[in-house]
């Protein structure tokens, strides 16, 4: 009985931690185009995508990063360790040396969701209260 209580307690703590980690980004969630096979990403995998180390999804589709300047800065910083300015400079360095494609930019959350919905391989960090239509939400573990 005592062992069962401990197991149950551990499970509950684990579930709480899991829930906490799944919403690890401040006020934001990660979305992707429906062509993306993955339903979840580890925090490290998300960071590798945002820092250009992973440029293709498992099936070979190019990762198309889309950002919403000024609206998701804290979450971007949390996800890749760079603020918006550093992120922009980082990708300009890759793009202007022929080693990557600059992230697309959206003017507002609705446009961001629209771009992700219509662009194969697209991924984005979007405010948690945005209406998500035609995209899939990726769990961040």
């Amino acid at each position: 009985m005592k062992k069962n209580l401990i197991k149950t307690g551990c499970l509950a703590i684990g579930l709480c931690l899991g829930a906490f980690q799944a919403q690890a980004l401040d006020g934001a969630v990660v979305i992707a185009n429906s062509s993306v096979a993955a339903d979840s990403l580890s925090a490290d995998a998300l960071k590798d995508i945002l820092t250009g180390k992973t440029k293709y999804w498992d099936g070979g589709q190019a990762v198309i990063i889309t950002i919403l300047p000024d609206k998701t800065d804290a979450a971007l910083q949390q996800a890749c360790g760079m603020d918006t300015s550093a992120f922009k400079t980082f990708w300009q360095r890759l793009a202007f040396s022929g080693r990557g494609q600059e992230p697309k930019k959206a003017a507002d959350a609705a446009e961001l969701v629209q771009i992700v919905a219509t662009t194969k391989g697209a991924i984005a960090i979007v405010p948690a209260d945005a209406a998500l239509t035609g995209v899939k939400k990726l769990e961040i573990k």
Binding site: Q92, R93, F96, S97
Partner: peptide, 9 residues
Amino acid sequence: AIQDVDLAR
């Protein structure tokens, strides 16, 4: 590789 890119510095 990016010495031409004034934007990036």
